[in-house]
Structure formats: structure tokens, C-alpha cells
Design a protein around this nucleic acid. Structure first.
Length: 679
RNA sequence: GGGCCGAUAGCUCAGAUGGUAGAGCAACUGGCUUUUAACCAGUGGGUCGCAGGUUCGAGUCCUGCUCGGCUCACCA
């Protein structure tokens, strides 16, 4: 008890918090925030207003002297040295004489390293988010500027006093002249120092950055600070490894770089369309009908109009109304909202580029889309290839094109191309009975395989558990990855074994099942269409690593696209797949109001049968088409997914600045909610 | 919805078999006038995600929950 803090001790801190604390109480306080608050109070006494309105930077670089501008402009004056090497004194003297000619300059930034104070001099790095530049403050040289008068504080070591009160993360402005230090680093010898803003909360770790994905995503500002303050200093081992990997440009991008690259991608896609005669438009984000795609919408309500509104799921029908109105080339690059699951590939709001081109068809659109993506990728990243996970995606090569049925045949399990007397090939999927059989066969095979592997997995687990008990503390000798490996190893064999031993039996079963279904009545075109799409998704989708256009979608699943002139059951529609992700979806736009009306009616029927994602009737759109819409091709491109590909991020949340996440609930709130529910 | 993993100091993470909560960085005090992951000496800081339980004793074991990650399934 004696060496524990007393109640009075705690109470004094409580009082301190109430009377001294500047920050509101929902922000956690600790010794570090208290130190920063004290520094701020002392700074206020020294320089007056601690949140001044502006800082004028000089214009030696031609434009504003940001840190990046200065570092870039004077990069060629800095001697290039290998690690540990120091510049020759004569060379240094010459360089510094040159730099003296440049004269006084003023720049500003955030303190990117904790000040290294050495008696009566100090080194600090300033960052403008992109580059960092060192400043050198000598006690007798630096004056503080008062933020009230704009004049130097009348105190011989005022600049030094301000420096003592600076914390990692504060913003300051400095005036001084450039020089190169003995160790060869470009620096500013500070004559005047002006305090600009305080970081009351401590900065994230300068070496590791932020690793917790939760904070990275919830508090993106901290993530971005971390990625601009991080010290790039891999140890020798890592360095050697990186050198071995060669020049594959596989270095992981910082969070900041991810969003810069995303921005560049968007800019290049806009520019490409602008250069090809498209105009950018904005259509309603809130609309009385949620149409243009198959998805569940968000609902909201307009008080004055007294109507229900939906956040749009796609701008498609509005953009096509503009084709009717006489804009031949339009695009919209903006958000869509879908009230569906959240995953590594889905965010409730996502950015889509849609554009429409009059007098063109789907084939033209594929060519145009391919070239646009290729050019934008090259301009955004500097090269035609991108590393994603362990794949190198080549945007430079012509994109592969497969019909959906070809893709199914291509990725049909290699070892079961032959089933009894039947050969699985593209033509097999022209016949609805064969489609039904193949679909059921896959379904059954998957079920049996999953059952078998599940049983195998449990067996391996049980085996492992028994070993664990018999081996006692050996658990700690065995690394987790080895455990997992042992449990997974038999898994592949069992899958192959099951496939080989049961394929003919399952094929017969599927045949019977298909036959009995057909005896009950012919399946609708829509059912057949769904079976084809399902087989494609199960078999092919995840295998489409390099950019691949999948064409010839079944008409019934494409209610807004035109049928192919060659095959009335097929829509002139394509989707672009890269690393198993749907990145784009385009088609020849259906412009026959009568047929569109029929298709909507089919959709409405499906909706009534319980398909929540089927479309609704949009009478005004039919009316628009009745005024006449030119033949046209249209496309939607998922920008977030493209950004993932170009930044090697496996989660869509890593390429969206502020992704949606479940709110954190405290225990007390939870019990309150539950009490409410119980009432 | 099922499964697996995670949550410990401001940050990054250690803490096998239950027994006084640790390191590095950050913070604070002192020293050092060209350092750079500065250095040297010293100091403070944690209700171990939340709520229960077992126990003489829980960061550690059990139950429930929250948040996050991965994964499978469903839906399209």
C-alpha cells in the first residue's frame, strides 16, 4: 500500500485534468499530451497567438518554396555519397559558397523527427508531406517571430526557447539560408523561426509507421501522417533481400503513395475522355427510382417533397437520357451506393466511371476501353505492368477475349473433360439440356468434394490434437505454419481422389436429375442463363488473372443491352476481369423502347418472385427512348478495383480514404440498447 | 451466418507450463555548437478490448460480448 499511489495523488491529477487540460475529455490524456499542452501554454507566453493565420513562403524556386520544391531544385548541388562517406572539405566549401548566393529563404512544414538537440545547436527535419528537409538551429543565431506583432521577439535566445518547446509533429515556418552539412545533407541554417501550429497528440511511430489496419482506416489522417513521417531505413538484412529481388519495382507503396496514384489514375482517365470529345456530366445521386444495375439501394426521404428517395446504384439510365438529348459522348465519374455486403472487394459506396458513345457498338467499346486503361495505367504508374500479390499484370499486351461459354470450357476441370461418352467443349453449352447437366454435375461435385475435404480436415485436426497431448510441450517447438501445413497437406490429395473416383457416378446422377427436371417442364431461358453465369463464376472467374474480356453474356441477365445480330439468345455485352475481379462491364445499349419495356416487365416479374435485386420499371426512361436514342455503346469501370490493382492492395478499404466500418460500441451503450430492445 | 487468428504503455511488439507486467521508440530531467534510427546518464507512464466465472492467486484457464483481420458459405 505504501508504495502505491494514494487517493490524494490520484485526486490531484483529476483536478489537474479538469483545470489545466485543453483537450476535450473524449480524447485520451496521458503524460505526453500534458507535456504538449504545457509547451503550448509556454509558447503562447513567448510568441502570442499560437494559431496564426498564415505564413508567407519565399519564391526562390520560381513558385512557392515548399520543402519539395526546394529539395528538387537544389538536389543537384548536394554531393552524391555512399553510405558513411563524407564530402571533401574543399568541395563542401565551394558548394556552400554557391548556396550562400541564393540568399535567405522562407519555408514551412511539420516537424518530422523529434528534435536532436546537442547543447547549443539542434537538427530537426521538416516535412511538407512529400519531401523532408533538415533545419539547423544554433542558439545564438535563431530569433523567434512573435505571431502578434510579426516582429522578432526581443530576447537574444528566443528562437532557441521556441525550439525547446517544439514537439514532434508541430508546424513551424523558418527563415534562413541553405547549406550542406559536414555529412553532406542539404539543410537550412535558421535565422528566424515562427511557430505555426501544435500537435497536441503524439505522432505515430517513426520507424514502423502504423500497422493496425483498424486505426489506419478509421483515422486515415494518422495513417497519412505516419506514411509521410516514416523513416526509410531498412536494416542490412532487409536491404540485401531487396537487392536480390532485382528491379521488379515491388516495393510496397506507402499509404500516401497509394492515394496519389489513385488520384493520378483518375486524372488520366478523365484526360483521356476529355481528349476524345467526351463531356463530363453530373446526374442525380438521389433519385426516386434505384435502377441501372442489379443491387439493393439505400433508402432516404425528402421532407418537403414527401417522397422516398434512393441513393443511386448506377447513373446509367440518366446518362442514356443525355444521349437522347443529343450529347453524343458523355461520362460521369462519381460514387454509386449499394446496400449490400462489405468485403475486401466491396464498399457500400464506390467510385465508378461510366461513359456512353453514340453510333458505336460493344466491339468498338472493348477496343477503346482497352486502350484507355492501358494509357491511363502507363501514365499513372510509369509502366504498362503492375505487380498484384504474386502476379504481374500486363496491361501492355492485347487483352484476351473469351466468350462466356469458351471460358467455361477452358476452365472446366482438366481431368474430367471426358464424362462417359460425352466430351465437354464449347458446343456442349449450346444445348439447354447439356447446360442443365453440366450445372448439376458441378454442383454435386463441389458438394462431394467439400464434404470429403471437410471430413479430412477434421481428421487431420483430431490427429494433431492427439499428437499435441502426447508430445506435451512440443507445441512450442512446432511453429504454427508447420502445424497448418501438416493439416492442409492431405487436403489436395483427397480433392483429386474424390474427383477421379466419383466423376462418372456424379455425371450419371446429374443426367438423371436434368432429365427429371425437364420432364416436369422446360426451364425458362432465364434459368438457363443463370446456370451459365453461375458455372462461369464458379469455374473461370478466379482464374482470369491477366486482363480478359468475357463476351456473349446470356440475354436474360442483361436487361439493358442489345441482343447480338448473330445470336438472339446472346447479349452484346462484355465484362473485363483482372485477377478474378470484375473491373468493367459494357454493352451495346438497348435503344428500342418497346423491347426495353418488355425487359423491364420481365424484371418486375422476377422482383415479384422475390429477387430483391431485379430492376424496377422506369416509365420515364421508356418515354425518353421513345423520343429516339442513337445506337450507342456504354461502359462502367470500377475505379476502386483498378486502384487496388495498380497499388497492390488486396482490400478495397486500403484504396478508399474513409471506408465504412462498423462503429465501435462501448459496453455501457450496448446494455442501454439491449434495455431499449427489451422494453 | 460458420471457422481460424488478433486486441498488453502514445507507437511497434515480447510475456510456455497460473505466482510482483517488460523491451525498443516516443515523453520528462540533465549533459553535449555539423547530427541524422544521434549519443551519454537518469525519471515517469499500463484496470493487459469489455463483462462474468474457476482459483489462495488470472495478461495467461473457462463462458459470453465488442471491434478488427483472414477465410468459407449465402446472395448477385
Amino acid at each position: 500500500m505504501a508504495n502505491r499511489p494514494t487517493a490524494i495523488y490520484h485526486f490531484s491529477f483529476y483536478i489537474y485534468d479538469i483545470f489545466m487540460s485543453l483537450l476535450p475529455d473524449f480524447i485520451e490524456h496521458n503524460d505526453q499530451t500534458r507535456a504538449r499542452e504545457e509547451h503550448l501554454n509556454e509558447l503562447r507566453a513567448l510568441v502570442g497567438n499560437v494559431y496564426p493565420n498564415k505564413f508567407e513562403r519565399s519564391h526562390i524556386t520560381g513558385d512557392e518554396d515548399t520543402i519539395t520544391a526546394l529539395v528538387e531544385k537544389f538536389a543537384d548541388r548536394v554531393p552524391k555519397l555512399s553510405e558513411g562517406e563524407r564530402p571533401a572539405p574543399e568541395a563542401l566549401e565551394r558548394i556552400n559558397a554557391e548556396l550562400k548566393e541564393v540568399g535567405q529563404l522562407r519555408t514551412s512544414g511539420r516537424i518530422a523527427t523529434p528534435p536532436r538537440v546537442m547543447g547549443k545547436a539542434a537538427f530537426v527535419h521538416l516535412s511538407d508531406g512529400q519531401e523532408r528537409l533538415q533545419i539547423y538551429v544554433r542558439k545564438q543565431d535563431a530569433q523567434a517571430i512573435s505571431n502578434d506583432t510579426g516582429q522578432p521577439v526581443d530576447d537574444f535566445d528566443s528562437g532557441w526557447k521556441v525550439l525547446q518547446l517544439l514537439d514532434h509533429g508541430d508546424f513551424i515556418g523558418v527563415e534562413g539560408n541553405l547549406f550542406v552539412t559536414k555529412t553532406g545533407e542539404l539543410s537550412i541554417h535558421v535565422q528566424k523561426i515562427q511557430f505555426l501550429s501544435k500537435a497536441l497528440l503524439p505522432m505515430p511511430d517513426k520507424m514502423h509507421g502504423l500497422t493496425d489496419p483498424e486505426i489506419r482506416q478509421r483515422q486515415r489522417y494518422v495513417d497519412l501522417i505516419a506514411s509521410s513521417l516514416k523513416v526509410e531505413k531498412p536494416d542490412e538484412g532487409e536491404k540485401a533481400e531487396k537487392a536480390d529481388e532485382g528491379n521488379t519495382a515491388s516495393r510496397e507503396l506507402s499509404s500516401r503513395e497509394v492515394f496519389l496514384r489513385r488520384s493520378r489514375l483518375i486524372r488520366e482517365m478523365r484526360r483521356y475522355l476529355d481528349d476524345h470529345g467526351y463531356i463530363e456530366v453530373e446526374t442525380p445521386m438521389l433519385s426516386p427510382k434505384a435502377t441501372g444495375a442489379a443491387a439493393k439501394p439505400f433508402e432516404t426521404y425528402h421532407n418537403t417533397l414527401d417522397i422516398k428517395l434512393y441513393a443511386r446504384i448506377a447513373p446509367e439510365l440518366y446518362l442514356k437520357r443525355l444521349l437522347v438529348g443529343g450529347f453524343e459522348r458523355v461520362y460521369e465519374l462519381n460514387r454509386n451506393f449499394r446496400n449490400e455486403g462489405i468485403s475486401t472487394r466491396h464498399n457500400p459506396e464506390f467510385t465508378m466511371l461510366e461513359f456512353y458513345t453514340a453510333y458505336k457498338d460493344v466491339n468498338w467499346m472493348m477496343d477503346f476501353c482497352e486502350e484507355m486503361i492501358r494509357q491511363s495505367v502507363i501514365k499513372a504508374t510509369g509502366e504498362p505492368t503492375a505487380i498484384f500479390s504474386d502476379a504481374e499484370i500486363d496491361f501492355g499486351r492485347r487483352f484476351q477475349r473469351l466468350t462466356m461459354k469458351e471460358a467455361i470450357a477452358e476452365y472446366w476441370p482438366k481431368d474430367i473433360k471426358k464424362l462417359g461418352k460425352d466430351e465437354i467443349s464449347t458446343s456442349a453449352f449450346d444445348d439447354p439440356v447439356q447446360i442443365e447437366r453440366a450445372h448439376w454435375f458441378l454442383h454435386e461435385l463441389e458438394k462431394v468434394e467439400n464434404e470429403a475435404t471437410e471430413r479430412q480436415r477434421n481428421f487431420a485436426l483430431e490427429d494433431y490434437r492427439q499428437n499435441k497431448y502426447s508430445l506435451g510441450n512440443a507445441r512450442f517447438a512446432l511453429s504454427k505454419t508447420e502445424e497448418e501445413y501438416l493439416a492442409i497437406q492431405p487436403y489436395k490429395h483427397i480433392r483429386e481422389h474424390v474427383r477421379e473416383s466419383s466423376k462418372d457416378m456424379l455425371w450419371e446422377k446429374a443426367q438423371k436429375r436434368a432429365t427429371s427436371r425437364w420432364n416436369e417442364g422446360t426451364p425458362s431461358d432465364e434459368q438457363t442463363a443463370r446456370q451459365i453465369v453461375e458455372m462461369f463464376e464458379r469455374l473461370a472467374e478466379s482464374n482470369l488473372v491477366q486482363p480478359t474480356f468475357i463476351t456473349d453474356f446470356p440475354k436474360p441477365v442483361s436487361p439493358l443491352s442489345k441482343a447480338s445480330p448473330d445470336d438472339p439468345t446472346v447479349a452484346e455485352r462484355f465484362e473485363l476481369y483482372i485477377v478474378g475481379m470484375e473491373v468493367a462491364n459494357g454493352f451495346s445499349e438497348l435503344n428500342d423502347p418497346v423491347e426495353q419495356y418488355e425487359r423491364f416487365r420481365d424484371q418486375v416479374e422476377q422482383r415479384e418472385r422475390g429477387d430483391e435485386e431485379a430492376m424496377v420499371m422506369d416509365e420515364d426512361y421508356i418515354r425518353a427512348l421513345a423520343y429516339g436514342m442513337p445506337p450507342a455503346a456504354g461502359i462502367g469501370i470500377g475505379i476502386d478495383r483498378l486502384a487496388m490493382l495498380l497499388t497492390n492492395r488486396q482490400s478495397i478499404r486500403d484504396v478508399i480514404l474513409f471506408p465504412h466500418m462498423r462503429p465501435q460500441r462501448k459496453a455501457e451503450e450496448k446494455t442501454d440498447d439491449e434495455q431499449d430492445e427489451n422494453k
